[in-house]
Amino acid sequence: MVDHDAVTHVASLARVNLDDEEVEQFAAQFDDILSYFETLDSVPEVESDEELENVFRPDEVCDGLTQEEALQNAPETEDGYFEGPTVS
Protein backbone atom coordinates (compact mmCIF):
# COMPACT_ATOMS: atom_id res chain seq x y z
CA MET A 1 0.00 0.00 0.00
CA VAL A 2 1.50 3.31 -1.08
CA ASP A 3 0.15 6.19 1.01
CA HIS A 4 0.70 9.93 0.84
CA ASP A 5 3.65 9.76 3.21
CA ALA A 6 5.40 7.18 1.04
CA VAL A 7 4.98 9.31 -2.09
CA THR A 8 6.20 12.41 -0.26
CA HIS A 9 9.20 10.49 1.08
CA VAL A 10 10.20 9.18 -2.37
CA ALA A 11 9.69 12.64 -3.87
CA SER A 12 12.06 14.08 -1.30
CA LEU A 13 14.66 11.37 -2.05
CA ALA A 14 14.33 12.22 -5.76
CA ARG A 15 14.41 15.98 -5.05
CA VAL A 16 11.16 16.68 -6.85
CA ASN A 17 8.56 18.91 -5.20
CA LEU A 18 4.97 17.81 -5.76
CA ASP A 19 1.73 19.67 -5.16
CA ASP A 20 -1.05 18.06 -3.09
CA GLU A 21 -2.99 16.98 -6.15
CA GLU A 22 0.04 15.16 -7.59
CA VAL A 23 0.70 13.41 -4.27
CA GLU A 24 -2.86 12.14 -4.19
CA GLN A 25 -2.86 11.04 -7.82
CA PHE A 26 0.52 9.30 -7.60
CA ALA A 27 -0.43 7.45 -4.40
CA ALA A 28 -3.42 5.90 -6.18
CA GLN A 29 -1.54 5.06 -9.39
CA PHE A 30 1.58 3.70 -7.69
CA ASP A 31 -0.45 1.01 -5.96
CA ASP A 32 -1.66 -0.32 -9.31
CA ILE A 33 1.70 -0.05 -11.01
CA LEU A 34 3.73 -1.56 -8.16
CA SER A 35 1.36 -4.49 -7.74
CA TYR A 36 1.74 -5.15 -11.45
CA PHE A 37 5.55 -5.08 -11.01
CA GLU A 38 5.22 -7.64 -8.22
CA THR A 39 4.46 -10.34 -10.80
CA LEU A 40 8.25 -10.29 -11.32
CA ASP A 41 8.33 -12.60 -8.28
CA SER A 42 7.40 -15.47 -10.62
CA VAL A 43 10.54 -15.11 -12.75
CA PRO A 44 12.70 -18.26 -12.65
CA GLU A 45 16.45 -18.29 -12.08
CA VAL A 46 18.30 -18.33 -15.39
CA GLU A 47 21.92 -18.37 -16.40
CA SER A 48 22.78 -14.80 -17.29
CA ASP A 49 26.31 -15.10 -18.57
CA GLU A 50 26.74 -12.47 -21.21
CA GLU A 51 29.54 -12.66 -23.71
CA LEU A 52 30.83 -9.17 -23.20
CA GLU A 53 34.34 -7.84 -23.48
CA ASN A 54 35.71 -4.57 -22.22
CA VAL A 55 36.72 -2.13 -24.91
CA PHE A 56 39.80 -0.07 -24.19
CA ARG A 57 41.40 2.86 -25.94
CA PRO A 58 44.68 4.66 -25.31
CA ASP A 59 44.40 7.43 -22.71
CA GLU A 60 45.26 10.33 -24.97
CA VAL A 61 44.67 14.02 -24.37
CA CYS A 62 42.22 15.52 -26.85
CA ASP A 63 40.08 18.64 -27.09
CA GLY A 64 36.97 18.92 -24.95
CA LEU A 65 34.50 21.72 -24.45
CA THR A 66 35.92 25.19 -23.81
CA GLN A 67 35.02 26.90 -20.54
CA GLU A 68 32.75 29.25 -22.47
CA GLU A 69 30.92 26.35 -24.16
CA ALA A 70 30.52 24.49 -20.88
CA LEU A 71 28.97 27.55 -19.23
CA GLN A 72 26.80 28.73 -22.12
CA ASN A 73 23.58 27.09 -20.90
CA ALA A 74 23.90 27.90 -17.21
CA PRO A 75 21.22 30.21 -15.78
CA GLU A 76 23.86 31.88 -13.57
CA THR A 77 27.65 32.01 -13.74
CA GLU A 78 30.31 34.01 -11.97
CA ASP A 79 33.99 34.45 -12.87
CA GLY A 80 33.95 31.41 -15.13
CA TYR A 81 32.17 29.17 -12.61
CA PHE A 82 28.67 27.75 -12.39
CA GLU A 83 26.76 29.55 -9.67
CA GLY A 84 24.59 27.31 -7.49
CA PRO A 85 22.52 27.72 -4.36
CA THR A 86 24.09 27.48 -0.91
CA VAL A 87 25.11 23.94 -0.05
CA SER A 88 23.66 23.55 3.43
Binding site: V7, V10, L13, V16, F30, L34
Partner: peptide, 9 residues
Protein backbone atom coordinates in the same frame (compact mmCIF):
# COMPACT_ATOMS: atom_id res chain seq x y z
CA UNK B 1 7.94 12.88 -12.37
CA UNK B 2 6.02 9.61 -12.17
CA UNK B 3 8.89 7.61 -13.68
CA UNK B 4 11.60 9.32 -11.62
CA UNK B 5 9.66 8.61 -8.43
CA UNK B 6 8.90 4.99 -9.31
CA UNK B 7 12.54 4.46 -10.29
CA UNK B 8 13.72 6.01 -7.05
CA UNK B 9 11.30 3.76 -5.17
Amino acid sequence: KRRILLGTY
